[in-house]
Design a protein around this nucleic acid. Structure first.
Length: 273
DNA sequence: TTTCGGTTTCCTGCTT
DNA sequence: TAAGCAGGAAACCGAA
């Protein structure tokens, strides 16, 4: 695995949403997960353990580093504990990824702006992620507790075994408020009105009713996200109709291009924010 | 390697 | 007549 120093968060985000957008009238839409996680209101000091894991996973993903190469058990802590770690602590806890994580959390801590800073998250030239990750994990059943002793093993249930790591990964995925599903993609467009001038619009915000304004443009955007240049609204709408059965969407009879979120759709209500 | 969920593709018929 | 909707069927693909 090797990541060049020119790899930036911006370039990664724009892989799907970037300026090479073939639809000039389609705005750039950052993934809901990214924009949601890195909000100004969400200071790392107050993160829960799950949010720490989300951040960890996100930084790894954004820098194309295999998250499984990080000993997650060393980060079994809440945001307050995370923020108390030193540079050396990060180095020991995460090996080669330590500096990257340290830079990221330092930026988030001190900038006072908990949004993605494309410049700050850029990989530093001195960071070589091609190096094999040292085994910085602790024996099974032991974790790093920064409060008692920096990097001292502490007995606790940990994600040290492959199975637990897998379940952790699932947990992180489950907690991830955004995702790669079509309905989530649609929802995220709706939730970013400033970036969505005229693609899809709410018909009834409280009821979850929305209408496609540029159906083919949305389909193209979805196709771009899925790396499928032959996506059309006809195909997209077929996928949408499959959501009726799962009650992610409800039918809106007699109205073209109009859909409604169902009981199994999450995160679209204003109270969900 | 298998299973499964989530699409994707193609199709026919119906409605607006 | 075109565009959109509905839904069946099969294929595809990535994740578990």
């Amino acid at each position: 695995m090797s990541v060049t120093s020119t790899t930036t968060l911006e370039s990664q985000l724009t892989t799907t949403w970037g300026p090479n957008n073939s639809y000039p009238d389609v705005p750039l839409v950052m993934s809901g997960y990214t924009s949601r996680l890195w909000t100004r209101d969400n200071q790392p000091q107050f993160w829960s353990k799950y949010q720490v894991w989300e951040w960890l996973q996100q930084v790894m993903d954004l820098n194309q580093i295999d998250a499984s190469s990080i000993p997650f058990q060393n980060f079994d802590m809440d945001g307050n504990q995370l923020c108390s770690l030193s540079y050396q602590d990060f180095l020991r806890a995460a090996g080669c990824a330590g500096p990257l994580l340290f830079h990221s959390i330092t930026d988030l801590k001190w900038s006072g702006q908990y949004h993605v800073d494309l410049g700050q998250l850029e990989l530093k030239p001195e960071l070589d992620f091609s190096c094999p990750f040292p085994d910085v994990s602790y024996p099974p059943g032991e974790i790093y507790d920064p409060l008692t002793h920096p990097l001292a093993p502490v007995a606790s249930p940990t994600p040290s075994s492959p199975d637990i790591k897998r379940s952790f990964s699932r947990q992180v995925k489950k907690q991830n408020p955004s995702g790669n599903h079509l309905w989530e993609f649609i929802r995220d467009i709706l939730l970013n009105p400033e970036r969505n001038p005229g693609l899809i619009k709410w018909e009834d915000r409280t009821e979850g009713v929305f209408r496609f304004l540029k159906s083919e443009a949305v389909a193209q955007l979805w196709g771009k996200k899925k790396n499928n240049s032959s996506m059309t609204y006809e195909k997209l709408s077929r996928a949408m109709r499959y959501y009726y059965k799962r009650e992610i969407l409800e039918r809106v009879d007699g109205r073209r291009l109009v859909y409604k979120f169902g009981r199994n759709a999450r995160g679209w209500r204003e109270s969900d924010k």
